[in-house]
Structures are given as structure tokens and as C-alpha cells.
């Protein structure tokens, strides 16, 4: 098992290098450091010298990949690529283009993101699995048909409508929660209720549909028929056999969305003014702060890979027949 994990981690390295190369290429083709400097220095009374100084202060005055001016290993070390991209591998995110330390901001901003993500994930899972089980239980009856159509209807609505509508109705018209903002500790709850509810409603359609398919697939397997043939109650069949065996696909779904949850929902966070990682990314895109975007892309990739490994490990936990090799 340990050997497997180590091998998987080693396999992650070329992937991260690939991710790094892609983002590096994309961002340095899009905007030369000169452009970034100009954005950050503002447009009043700007001169070339200030741009050069700005670049020097942030290490953007070096060659991109290869530095012929330096000697030895410095030929590669004294480059933008090494300074800005390679250092990500040791989680040294460096400073944002506005001078703030990125690692510090990420550590600060991950909490609000998690505060939305974790409740959304757990409550969402509970609701979706419960409803899906119910639909599976009542399969091919009117309850099932109505449920499926309701699900399709819910998932045909753009998430933007849920957010705009929720904010308008619950915050503005009914005065039930603050419209936007965030606070630390327990007082964060009043700010989190609405984003979480909106997220739940937005996800319930596709979620239920997805789990229902999984359950139905399991229900049609032979062992279920056998169990039923033994005269077991339908609910026992569902809970004891179907749910247990559906754990693997459920886990796959959950673990793979972990990085997305961590990164925060871009749109939700910026709508509700929650200072999480999602709004961090949007701000960075809007401010063209590519140091931050690069760091977040890298972090996202790392989490994705960790998520994949976790999925495999969790398989062995729910189903001892699965062996990692």
C-alpha cells in the first residue's frame, strides 16, 4: 500500500511539470512582464524607468527559460521559469504582483472556502443520496417519474439564476440574512446560510439523478435479486446491499470534486462577497495578477492528483476485494 502511494506520488511529478509548462506558456505569452508592470503602476505619470524598476523588484527582468549571461547552473536558475514556476514545487508561491505573499493569503482564504464547501458537500450528499434512494425505492412509479422530471428541471436552470434569485428573495425582500459579507468564527454562519442553500438547490437536480442511476444499476445486479428472493424487506435490500455496493462510485464522485470544493465556487464567492479562494482567483484574473493565478492553478492540480490517490485508497476501505498494485 505504501509502495503504491509512493509510486503514485512519483507519477504525479511529470504531470505537475506538464501543468507548470502549460500555465507558464499561457501566461507569459499572454502578457509580457512589461504589461503587468504597467497595470500595477497605474496610468498617471508613468515612465519606462519605473516599469524597469518594477520588473527588477519582482524578478521579471530575467530571461524566460535560459540565461546565457549567467554561469553554470545559474543559466537555468536565474530565469523567470525557475524563479516563478519551478519554485512552486516546494510550495513557495512567492509574492503576488502587488507585493503580498501568496502563501499567506491562501492560508487565510482557504477557511471561508472550506466553511462553504464542507457543509455543502456533507448536507448535499445526505440530501442527494436520500432522495435518490427514495426514487430508487419507488422506481417506475409516479413518484419516481415526478422526481426525475423535477430533477431535470432543476438542473436545466443556470446556477446564475439560483444565485441572483436567492439573493433577491431571501436577503433583499425577506431580510432573513445579510446580503453579502463575511465574518470570522461563529458569526460567519449568517453569511454562509444563503450560499450553502443556493449551492444545495443548484446541485440537487444533477446529484439526485447521478446517484439514482448508480442505485438502479446496483439494484439490477444478481446479488440484489438473490437478497430479495430471500424475502428481505426492500428497504433492507436498499440500505444493506445496494448502498454498500454503491459506495465506490459515490466515493469517486466525492473525492474528485474535493479540489473544486477547496478552490471555492468562483461565482458564489464573488456574488456573496466571501473572501475565499474562489474570489481570490476571480480578483486575480480581473487584476491580471498572474502570479496568483499560476499559484492557484498549481495548487488545484496538486489537489486533483491527491484526490485521485485518495479515491484509490478509499476503494480498499469500502471494498476489501480491491487491491492496490
Amino acid at each position: 500500500m505504501l509502495a503504491y502511494i509512493i509510486r503514485r506520488l512519483l507519477y504525479a511529478i511529470p504531470i505537475l511539470i506538464g501543468v507548470n509548462l502549460i500555465t507558464f506558456a499561457l501566461f507569459f505569452v499572454v502578457n509580457t512582464p512589461d504589461d503587468v508592470a504597467r497595470v500595477h503602476l497605474g496610468d498617471k505619470y508613468l515612465n519606462e524607468e519605473a516599469v524597469a524598476n518594477w520588473k527588477a523588484a519582482r524578478g521579471y527582468d530575467k530571461p524566460l527559460i535560459y540565461n546565457p549571461g549567467a554561469s553554470g547552473f545559474d543559466k537555468f536558475q536565474q530565469t523567470i521559469f525557475f524563479e516563478k514556476s519551478a519554485k512552486l514545487f516546494v510550495f513557495d508561491f512567492g509574492a503576488a504582483d502587488d507585493g503580498r505573499d501568496i502563501g499567506y493569503d491562501i492560508r487565510q482564504r482557504m477557511w471561508p472556502s472550506l466553511a462553504i464547501a464542507i457543509p455543502s458537500l456533507i448536507i448535499g450528499l445526505l440530501i442527494n443520496v436520500t432522495v435518490a434512494m427514495m426514487l430508487a425505492f419507488f422506481r417506475a412509479s409516479y413518484i419516481d417519474i415526478v422526481g426525475v422530471i423535477a430533477g431535470v428541471t432543476l438542473m436545466s436552470i443556470s446556477s446564475m439564476f439560483y444565485i441572483i434569485g436567492g439573493q433577491y428573495l431571501i436577503s433583499k425582500s425577506l431580510h432573513l440574512v445579510p446580503i453579502s459579507g463575511y465574518d470570522e468564527g461563529l458569526s460567519a454562519i449568517k453569511f454562509l446560510v444563503l450560499p450553502i442553500i443556493v449551492g444545495l438547490i443548484g446541485g440537487i437536480g444533477s446529484g439526485t439523478r447521478w446517484y439514482r442511476t448508480i442505485f438502479l444499476e446496483e439494484i439490477n445486479r444478481d446479488y440484489v435479486r438473490t437478497a430479495r428472493a430471500k424475502g428481505l424487506f426492500e428497504s433492507i435490500v436498499l440500505f444493506k446491499h445496494v448502498l454498500k455496493n454503491a459506495m465506490i462510485p459515490i466515493l469517486t464522485g466525492v473525492v474528485v470534486i474535493l479540489p473544486i470544493l477547496f478552490m471555492g465556487s468562483l461565482v458564489t464567492e464573488s456574488f456573496f462577497g466571501i473572501p475565499g479562494l474562489g474570489s481570490y482567483v476571480i480578483d486575480a484574473i480581473q487584476a491580471q495578477d498572474f502570479a496568483i493565478v499560476r499559484a492557484m492553478v498549481f495548487l488545484g492540480s496538486v489537489l486533483y492528483i491527491v484526490g485521485l490517490i485518495l479515491t484509490d485508497i478509499s476503494y480498499t476501505l469500502v471494498d476489501p476485494r480491491v487491491r492496490l498494485s
Binding site: 504531470i15 501543468v19 502549460i22 499572454v30 482567483v281 492553478v297 492540480s301 486533483y304
Partner: peptide, 19 residues
Amino acid sequence: YTTLSSIPGVLLIAASVLM
């Protein structure tokens, strides 16, 4: 495809559109 899919999609799209 593992490399591509491990980059958060929105960010990849954003970067490309800017390009």
C-alpha cells in the same frame, strides 16, 4: 489527458481566452 484534466478548467479557459 491527466495533465490537462488536473488544471482547473475555468482557469485554463480564462488563460486561453485572454491569449
